[in-house]
């Protein structure tokens, strides 16, 4: 017996399934449009001076964004120093020590923090660091981005430590290791590739953040000495230059956008490839 399927049903079937395919093509092609436009506009305005020179006033040729590149590095270093240890240790606590009730309270709080809009984190950085110290600084930017790094740091640590099989813990403890020794010499090393790539993803996420830096790190057209002065960062430079009326500044913005996007995507893709091929996923 053969089933007769009416023409209308067959047409609807093919039509709707192709439409869903079209949606996928559209969504993926947006990525290639973004990459394409930044490649075309960015490489055209990129030069050696971009990496070695200070910004010049509009109209003069040959300015660069060396200070913003170093500035982004400094602010991100501070963010990592603040966010990663704190998030990592809290994640260790959740995975290895905590009782259920307290863990779910922390987990809920972490999710809440992860959902806070980045501009609000900027206000918090302003209120906690800029107001007491009375000036904008690299430190304030670092604190703001550091707070943003905590949730993902906690979550990846907990997740990857949990994926370490219990037999490893039991083995270490049977050999007489204390719990602390078991955690830090057996469990953490077993999960280390996942942990590092998780932190890389985390870094890539905050590296492009602009809103929290607008009124913490502020910006600077010159080199910023130390950690307590306003400091230029790539994302804020892109924002300021893109909104400036001068055409040559737009070109600089494209170049900076290209550098920033390349940086973020390279870190992101590397980390995700490590996770995808890592031992923790192949074991499943």
């Amino acid at each position: 017996m053969t089933m007769e399927i009416s023409l209308r049903r067959r047409v609807v079937n093919v039509l709707m399934l192709s439409l869903s395919g079209l949606c996928t093509v559209l969504a993926v092609s947006v990525l290639f449009f973004i990459l394409g436009y930044l490649l075309v506009h960015g490489v055209r305005s990129l030069s050696f001076a971009f990496f070695t020179h200070l910004p010049k006033p509009s109209g003069e040729t040959g300015g660069g964004m060396a200070n913003a590149i170093v500035g982004s590095g400094k602010v991100l270093l501070l963010a990592v120093l603040i966010g990663v240890p704190l998030g990592f240790l809290a994640g260790v606590f959740l995975a290895e020590y905590s009782n259920k009730a307290f863990a779910s309270l922390i987990r809920y709080t972490v999710d809440l923090l992860n959902g806070v809009p980045s501009i609000v984190i900027g206000i918090v950085g302003y209120a906690l660091v800029v107001l007491p110290m009375k000036h904008f600084s690299a430190l304030a930017g670092g604190v703001a981005l550091g707070i943003m790094m905590i949730p993902i740091a906690v979550r990846t640590t907990e997740e990857f430590l949990r994926s370490v099989p219990n037999s490893l813990r039991e083995g270490a403890m049977a050999l007489g290791a204390t719990k602390a020794k078991t955690i830090f010499t057996v469990v953490v090393p077993a999960a280390i590739s996942g942990l590092i790539s998780g932190m890389m993803l985390n870094l890539a996420r905050v590296a492009g953040e602009t809103a929290p830096l607008l009124f913490t790190a502020l910006g600077n057209m010159f080199w910023s000495k130390g950690w307590l002065q306003p400091i230029a960062t790539l994302p804020v430079m892109i924002y300021n230059y893109a909104l400036a009326p001068q055409e040559d500044l737009h070109q600089q913005a494209w170049a900076a956008g290209f550098v920033l996007l390349t940086l973020v995507l390279v870190i992101n893709i590397t980390a995700r490839l490590i996770i995808a091929r890592g031992p923790s996923s192949s074991r499943r």
Binding site: F33, T210, G257, L260
Partner: peptide, 23 residues
């Protein structure tokens, strides 16, 4: 394809703004 689409979420928002204004 999901990997590629998820990369879109990694693009910094200031870059979306840049493309928004000029493209």
């Amino acid at each position: 394809l999901t990997f590629l689409i998820e990369l879109l979420a990694a693009v910094p928002s200031v870059i979306y703004g840049l493309l928004g204004i000029f493209i």
